[in-house]
Design a protein around this nucleic acid. Sequence first.
DNA 1: TAAGGTTACGGCGATCGTAACGATC
DNA 2: GATCGTTACGATCGCCGTAACCTTA
Lengths: 301, 301
Amino acid sequence: MNLSQIELLRVLQETNFSLSKAADKMNVVQSAVSRQLQLFEEELGSPLFERQGKKLIGMTLLGNRIMEEVSTINRAKNNIQMMAADYLDSNQGTLHLATTHAQAKYFLPKPIQRFREKYPGVIISMVQASPEQLIDHLHTRKADIAICTERVDEVNDLVIETCYEWHHSAVVLKNHPLNEGAITLERLAEFPILTYNFGYTGRSNIESAFNNAELKLDITLAAADTDVIKTYVRIGLGVGLITGMAYDPLADQDLVMRDLSHIIPRSRTKIAYLKHNYLPLYSQHFIEELLIAGNEVNNLQ
Amino acid sequence: MNLSQIELLRVLQETNFSLSKAADKMNVVQSAVSRQLQLFEEELGSPLFERQGKKLIGMTLLGNRIMEEVSTINRAKNNIQMMAADYLDSNQGTLHLATTHAQAKYFLPKPIQRFREKYPGVIISMVQASPEQLIDHLHTRKADIAICTERVDEVNDLVIETCYEWHHSAVVLKNHPLNEGAITLERLAEFPILTYNFGYTGRSNIESAFNNAELKLDITLAAADTDVIKTYVRIGLGVGLITGMAYDPLADQDLVMRDLSHIIPRSRTKIAYLKHNYLPLYSQHFIEELLIAGNEVNNLQ
DNA sequence: TAAGGTTACGGCGATCGTAACGATC
DNA sequence: GATCGTTACGATCGCCGTAACCTTA
């Protein structure tokens, strides 16, 4: 048994059991990985993969059992390398972030700016994706840290830290009836709603508020980002439900924002990263920076 | 990085950082391990060991951080091998038990006999040791399963299952005053006591009973095993406090046993094995056998 | 000077790449 | 016939062992 065989098993799983793709990923020729897999299975005495003819089509019972240990080993190996690199120079490397539009646009600029001043040598790589994709990015190690409101707490191999809390606001045109008087869910339910896609930016909290009140939510437009929502509010499509952060008093002078914290549950934006996964010092400091910025957001409210 | 380098780190820790002893253990020459360590440190870019001249005298900060990952890898590697061996033939292998005298003599014979009938191909290796040694045996993988009453619950990388509960009894000669009337801690405290060594077979429960009652425990003889205790009770040295299991109505006709469950807390005998450590099927079945036998003991009372 | 560690070098084995072959859609 | 996997074989590289050398109790 050796580490490249262990690595091979991981890669094979990622490539849907394709030896040729695995060979590509590992920068060796196909015959090499074929042989290595044979040797490994021979050493263990039992096949690890189900085969259809010569093709691998899945894992055997034993293979599946072993995969958990395999990822443990890979994780530990990576941790060792990270720790050593960190020890050599904890001021350079790459910080891989994954986040949604809302966080990238409205929350992250400040903590990232501060972080860059402290760690000018660290390259920041940011991918924007849906909450499900974020989790996948963490699992496949394409991202080290995810910042996100939805979903992440359902996954149990992630460490979750609450970054800040926020609530939804309604945005409407100046002549809109919702401009006057108290806003209730019932009143809201009378209008077509423009808000985030399902699974994005606290959408689930909007859903549950309406469901609990047994009201129907009439969604006219669901978008991944606030700018799209505001655009359609401006052409009179209905009431926008967005995060308060996204309202810009200057640029959005033509719109009126009204607080909905009394009728829609507060949302929590969280920081997520893999358990048992070593994060370089600068990543740990970035998380601290996020928490500081999160606190500032909380205190503003 | 490769698995033998990882293994080397573990062995070095076990041999007090001696390259020559590590080489011996790994069945290679000294120069080979020396070179491998150099290569590994070179690859990581920082030394893992503190040196005094050429001698290794300890681990660096980085070395220490890494050791945790190293043992994770070694553990996972072993698990893979165990699983594979198990899959090939779960009816043979070696079951390494570690236990104390009391369990070996009075509790284990029945479950072991039953186990042997089901798994005639499994070699049973049993070492008798003190509770501290048992834990060490588990950690150094000299034993897979430990059966023991004391200590084990203080260690947090062990899985602990309660096997059975029992209580102490007093054994005395037929003409002894304790033969008559109810036994209280106060009466017991009047006599010299013969019982188990500190840290053995529920001794701690005897201590705490006396301490709670603010009575002095006058121990004349402390032994690791019941036979020694009974021998000295027979020559009139005092009152023996032993586990009820150890009283044999036939062989011990000359002694009288009296129940002490009302004055000394019940003891629990536990099964312990390493967390995150794969146990072969037959070992898992042996544990079941232990639990069954434990239940029988519980129900007898 | 014995014991423990390093360095230099030769030999062997493991693993890779090339290439030809086999199977499957 | 294109894609994917296996087998055979030669070349290379890594790792071990021998042995000489260095350092410190």
